[in-house]
Design a protein around this nucleic acid. Structure first.
Lengths: 130, 130
DNA sequence: CGGGATCCGACAGGATACTG
DNA sequence: CAGTATCCTGTCGGATCCCG
């Protein structure tokens, strides 16, 4: 259809569609978003332990897993300093920063309309004889 | 911090934050998004069976569950026509339509940069002695 | 310090059978 | 037609223990 708001997907392969969907779902998920936000908020590279402190409630396993995923997606950079004890720092890439801005835009839109997301307010007028 | 891009969340309760997060995660998820898209694409109310045809691969159980969730979130409207056999039609609410547009915007942004989401392109220059 | 390996419970989602 | 009920399996995430 001509008016399809997802027109830009028309010439995509199934693989590209799946890749885009995965990226969107990841960025919208709880832990990845909070981690990106923590890194953005810090304004400087964060060590593993500091990041874990800033993302309240996350387990070490999920923190590690998500860091690996975000790194392979090109959203963060992991830098290992081979000292004793070892030091590892994580920071946002420009792409990660930009994606976070996009998601924040969506968040703001939703938060501003929080009161509207409720079935009580979606009463169909025709059902009332209007 | 003053530069926090999520500043607009600062005066939110934990419940509001959780609610917003849930809404975002739902809208970004695979089946809800494809269902909203199908309803938008149809341009008219769809019956249960027609919707199931248009959302390829979805199970009847998940279709029902997701319809209930979307309805309780005020994104779609369910209209029952007490005929024999029964007829039920689903359509987007204005809010549902608007949310879909917001998510589509995010999708377009990601799709246009699909090639960038790849760790190979996120090489840290300082690691190369630059 | 920054993880890896393992076990476990909770829950999402598919397949199937049945119903007003 | 438009669901509901049930079973089953895969995955996610928490907790714990261990290592270089």
């Amino acid at each position: 259809m001509a008016g399809d708001i997802f027109d830009f997907c028309s010439d995509m392969t199934d693989e590209q569609d799946a890749r885009a969907r995965t990226l969107i779902e990841r960025a919208a998920a709880k832990w990845p978003l909070r981690m990106l936000h923590a890194l953005s908020d810090a304004g400087a590279p964060l060590r593993f332990s500091r990041l874990m402190e800033r993302v309240e409630g996350i387990s070490q396993k999920v923190l590690t897993q998500t860091l690996r995923t975000l790194e392979s997606d090109g959203l963060i950079i992991r830098t290992l300093y081979p000292e004793v004890p070892p030091r590892v720092e994580y920071e946002l890439t420009p792409l990660g920063r930009d994606l976070l801005v996009q998601v924040a835009t969506l968040w703001r839109w939703v938060v501003e309309r929080l009161g509207d997301f409720d079935a009580r307010k979606a009463v169909k007028l025709t059902a009332m004889g209007v």
